[in-house]
């Protein structure tokens, strides 16, 4: 009884797995991730690219998935919060957020994790100011960012030690 909709077939890689989905031309990536692929870790706070809760990596580039058309990821690689921990082992950003109490309600946390991981891949040794500016696109209303920034700088230290 659904009206027939004009759907496109998209072939992509999500969290390392080859994935195909159907989407309408105007559908944004965040909706497909959540509603079609059941990757609900990508959160929607605004749908206008202002809050960063829907942050994902497309070809290792940090984007707001609410501003990316789903059809645009044809042939690309997408990494979401669900793909950050490797085989049950948390990424240092995730581990340090837990250890520092860097989350309260947790709705912004997936976006913060994805964005901070991208930061540390670009800049393994950020200053506090660099971390604050990189994460300025990820709104958190609970924490005042204090423990988030501490956790990210601590995770950077861990990653540098692991690399050394």
């Amino acid at each position: 009884m659904n009206k027939p909709l004009n759907k496109m077939a998209v072939q992509t890689t999500v969290n390392g797995e080859s994935t195909a989905f159907l989407c309408s031309p105007g559908q944004v990536l965040s909706d497909v991730l959540r509603d079609e692929l059941e990757l609900i870790g990508t959160k929607i706070g605004c749908n206008t690219g202002d809050c960063g809760a829907c942050s994902v990596l497309v070809n290792d580039r940090l984007v707001c998935s609410c501003l990316v058309l789903a059809a645009e990821v044809e042939g690309q690689t997408v990494q979401t919060i669900e793909g950050i921990a490797k085989g049950g082992e948390l990424h240092p950003v995730q581990q340090k957020l837990l250890e520092h109490g860097g989350l309260q309600c947790g709705i912004c946390t997936p976006g913060i994790v994805v964005a901070a991981k991208a930061l540390l891949e670009h800049n393994p040794n950020p200053t506090e100011e660099q971390a604050r500016y990189w994460l300025a696109g990820n709104l958190c209303r609970c924490t005042g960012y204090d423990k988030i920034i501490r956790a990210v700088l601590d995770a950077a230290k861990t990653l540098r030690e692991e690399a050394a």
Partner: peptide
């Protein structure tokens, strides 16, 4: 915490 940092 684990569920919240992994998106579950």
């Amino acid at each position: 915490g684990l569920d919240k940092v992994t998106g579950r």
